[in-house]
Design a protein around this nucleic acid. Structure first.
Lengths: 344, 344
DNA sequence: GAATATTTGATGTACGTAAATCAAAAACGC
DNA sequence: GCGTTTTTGATTTACGTACATCAAATATTC
């Protein structure tokens, strides 16, 4: 049987009320008595029954998700997952609100964080932008004991509790090895298509990709990066021009979210033999993978990221440890052979 | 605010006791009254507070894991994960026992299932062997309302509630595409190394692998399957003989758990240029991937499988729905570039 | 309509914790 | 020693559900 507060009280030779004072950091306990109780807790191996505690407190975890507004499929998918978590929230003692902010706008994001702060939640999950005003806003939240988790895009060097997202350098390296080995001896340069070098995850993917190409496939030339702003129309135009300029192109690594335009340009040009590695599984990229236009997809599972963020925020709010192995977001590598059925 | 049993009673115009009788399927309620209560439940959208219910019941979920004895790293890893779940069990109202059975022995497994049945648990997780006596034993458990989840290796056509493992056909197909594309125009046959064709996961991986090789890489010949019983010593002997017999071998797909012997044989023969795709991330296979002896690893995360099995068993024991998207076990594709740090 | 069986209500206790109140005891200053 | 402050104890209520008991009301049978 698991020990209860009563057992602690008996073991320490104090009353229930005193145990409660110690457990919940209430004032009015002598240092000596506090020690006695803590020794009893340690010796009996007491662990507070969080479910009973939450029941008694009538607690519900108020959480706020801050997401970039915009219509790219991945972010829409992320929003869908948050909404599904909201639908389940009754059963999980959570109360989740979403705040939308204009994409790529650090000041707007800092303001949203301040607004979230005002609402006094137990935790905040945010798709971060790597800027000082954002780091500051996060620090202010943390100073007030509000847990903060970055989602998809991290804010290293800030005081965030946790990052729920993939290792983007590893993702870029993986793309490099795949494209290098898939191409084998086939001649021709490789192009890189990004959204914007302003966002950290794109920069990191490029860094990983380049280092692998340099280390392991040094003879293959890499064309200058094309920035398509994740805009389908712009991407299509840029890729079409690229294909015309370089008829010998062997492969393309698309590390951003411009898949729709990329696929359109490739198919119009009839260049199915170009080896393409792209990111994020959406209905477009799935179709392109199945048709053979895209050869491999790297993906981060938005559902996992959202659920992980919620678990971590709840744990941090309770001062509980986090199961690191469970919360590591993995880089999915999809070929046409191992696509999950159903969704996305 | 979430409705409680009191709200249901008020809404239905009955007493708390009657609501309780309906909710817990206790006898002594007229059909008409039962309907009234059920309508109230539906109209208020009542969901039982499982944590409060468990608290009241003093419930702890007795679960039994049945694992194959043996010293292969993957199964040891699986055992480790179960033991870690046991360490966390205090906080999760679970009480987990492990039963070990000799590997690849259907009758012993059926006996273990009967033993598990005798102990009267809420659920059983089992690494299945696809044999009629096992299917029968599972059916008997289910007939007594005991939840059953197959782990790693499935038992389709049985009455198991859920399978916590990967899609092995997809895994085999993925291996096929990877080896086919990595080899490109390089000549030479491909060999397949399995543990035993008795277990379904090995059969399915082979099936997926063969079908992709046939569909997409028809010109490459596949040597007859070698069964190494996942025994390092035997595997090393068999692979050494294989390499001697076929000096022109271009690739090996190891779909079982005999990696230690495979790597030893390859390294002793100095055949690093052979393209090798193997399964399961262990300390041995990790080292071999980093050194280049293995080119890619397909992996199922044992920790995820164990945690998923536990979640599903608890949910089934409570008659609760399962979040399918969360419980899908993914096929990890590891190259040396995206190996997770830490463990395994 | 009486006797019986079935259904329903009323009520209390329990689970493990939180939180509040008030009284009692101990420690402290002077 | 006194009064005062601080610390501790004892007790109660609450959270939402499960489960048991006993009495009361309603159906059913003959």
């Amino acid at each position: 049987m698991r020990p209860t507060v009563h057992d602690i009280a008996a073991e320490a030779g104090v009353s229930l009320a005193t145990v409660d004072r110690v457990l919940n950091n209430r004032p009015g306990v002598r240092e000596l008595t506090r020690d006695k109780v803590e020794r009893a807790i340690a010796s009996l191996g007491y662990v507070r029954d969080v479910t009973a505690a939450n029941l008694a407190k009538g607690r519900s975890y108020k959480l706020i998700f801050i997401l970039p507004a915009g219509d790219n499929s991945f972010m829409l998918g992320l929003e869908t997952e948050v909404r599904e978590a909201i639908a389940r929230s009754a059963a999980e003692r959570t109360e989740i609100d979403i705040l939308f902010v204009p994409a790529f706008d650090p000041q707007a994001l800092a303001n949203a964080l301040a607004e979230a702060h005002r609402r006094g939640p137990a935790g905040v999950a945010v798709v971060a932008i790597d800027a000082p005003e954002v780091t500051d806003a996060v620090r202010r939240l943390r100073d007030d004991g509000i847990a903060v988790v970055t989602l998809v895009s991290d804010l290293p060097g800030s005081s965030r509790d946790h990052f729920a997202g993939i290792d983007n350098i590893a993702a870029g390296r993986t793309a490099g090895t795949l494209i290098g080995r898939f191409l084998g001896d086939r001649a021709g340069p490789v192009a890189v298509l990004a959204g914007s070098m302003l966002v950290r995850d794109h920069r990191e993917r490029l860094e990983g990709f380049r280092s692998v190409m340099c280390e392991s496939f040094g003879s293959r030339s890499i064309l200058p990066v094309i920035e398509g702003q994740d805009d389908p129309v712009l991407v299509e135009k840029l890729v079409a021009a690229l294909l015309e300029r370089h008829p010998d192109i062997a492969g393309i690594y698309s590390l951003g979210a411009g898949n729709r335009g990329l696929v359109a340009a490739l198919e119009k040009a009839g260049r199915a033999q170009v080896c393409v590695i792209a990111h994020e599984l959406t209905s477009y990229s799935r179709a392109a993978l199945l048709s053979g236009t895209i050869d491999a997809l790297l993906n981060q599972d938005a559902g996992h990221e959202v659920r992980s963020a919620i678990r971590v925020l709840k744990a941090k709010a309770d001062g509980l440890p986090v199961l690191e192995a469970q919360e590591r977001i993995r880089i999915d590598v999809f070929l046409k052979d191992n696509l999950p059925n159903g969704q996305a």
